[in-house]
Computed example of a mutant assay.
Amino acid sequence: MTSLPEILLPAAIRSRYVDAINGLRMHVLEAGFETPGRPCILLLHGFPELAYSWRKVMPALADAGYHVIAPDQRGYGRTTGWDANYDGELAPFRLTNLVRDALGLVSAFGYTRVEAVIGHDFGSPVAAWCALVRPEVFRSVVMMSAPFGGPPALPFGTAALPAKPQAEDPVHRELAALPRPRKHYQWYYSRREANNEMTRARQGIHDFLRAYYHHKSADWKANQPHPLAGWTAGELAKLPTYYVMDRAQTMPATVAKEMPDAAAIAAHRWLPDRELEFYSAEYRRTGFQGGLQWYRCGTSGVFNRELQIWSGRTIDVPSCFIAGKQDWGTYQRPGVFEAMQATVCTAMMGCHLVDGAGHWVQQEQPEQVIELLLQFVAQARARAAG
């Protein structure tokens, strides 16, 4: 690990390792560590990202008096102790074990209470499950760029009915049968070939990530999201190809069509090439399979029964949602954004769609995100104080 390149970080952030976290040696970025006894904020990244994705907001949260902890999650970056083998055990990547990772990390730092757990992209459901399962520890939650639809429902009122086999979702056959055949990205990510196709992308990992981040950002002007009417092939086909791909295409080939030109890259502000190079260097080293295992847990459905333990349970701690206004992620699962506000979160204190940001909201518009986060955490603490 000593041979790894230096991470380009603001002076207020340090990189460190914490051993024996649920079988992991976890790489962590932290800010506000100089003063003992500070309240804790935990930041959880998504895919294909790293703890580094929080570099723009961590110093301001620390300046506001918090100890800010951002790990490379299981399967990512410099955290070790996980298996990247497609044929290896999938269970360590299930949501309840990711919650155990988060709980173990804050416990190792000596915290029995976390003021806010904040998750972006696939980190959002992990944060949501933290707040749902252990609300006495995770006292408020911010979900970013991926709304939370709640635990899966248990079969209800079926005692007099014969058992039925698990029904296959017909939407995948319907997508494949469209005049322009399509496939859903999460099921693409669950394929054995996906990691190899991305790590060996024809354009190289650096240019693949450049195009991927660009395509899902507000810089791609065709990102004009709106609610979809339902989980049907016709509605899902309205999503951009980074979500509902052309059936014959890989993800690198999909995003390559939207690669920004050299002038745009040279002028890039929210993710200059020197910062993108850190992501690409890490993914060249680790590959993508660690993150792809998370998608496989979801698409396989094999861990739904475990999650049904919490069927009907709501998130009752103060909650908030933040996403880019130009982010299709808010609507990619029809009805979830609305259900999160109406029934899943009983103490929702705001849903904010930040203009000028796509999917990478805390990197594209960090100042606005910082303001919203600090406002929310202050309000949540005031509410808890009575």
Rank of each mutant, 00 (worst) to 15 (best):
L271I: 09
W294G: 00
D316V: 10
G350N: 08
L95Y: 02
R182F: 01
A51D: 01
T232Q: 10
E168W: 07
K56H: 15
G386N: 09
Y52K: 10
H45F: 09
R285G: 03
F278E: 11
V344A: 01
E136H: 15
L4W: 13
V99I: 10
H184P: 00
A160S: 15
L90R: 07
G88F: 12
W82I: 11
I69T: 06
A51S: 15
A262N: 10
T330R: 07
V68A: 06
V369M: 01
A229S: 15
M198R: 13
G75F: 11
S3V: 10
T314V: 11
D169A: 09
A222C: 01
T232K: 05
A91N: 05
R25D: 01
N85K: 13
R313D: 02
W187D: 06
V133M: 15
E367L: 09
G157R: 09
G287K: 09
F288L: 11
A153S: 12
V126I: 15
P260Y: 11
A176D: 02
G65E: 08
A116P: 07
I265Q: 14
R296W: 08
A262R: 15
G234H: 06
T254K: 04
T79H: 04
N97S: 05
C40T: 07
R202H: 06
L154A: 04
A102F: 01
G46W: 12
Q341D: 12
Y279F: 13
E193G: 00
A262W: 12
S124H: 14
A211L: 04
I205A: 00
G324F: 14
G88S: 10
A263P: 05
R381A: 13
Q224A: 12
V57G: 02
Y188W: 15
G234M: 03
G358K: 07
S124W: 13
C351F: 00
R192M: 07
Q308H: 03
G149F: 14
A253V: 14
L4I: 01
A267K: 11
Y86Q: 00
V141Q: 09
A201V: 11
P240Q: 06
Q368D: 13
A62H: 01
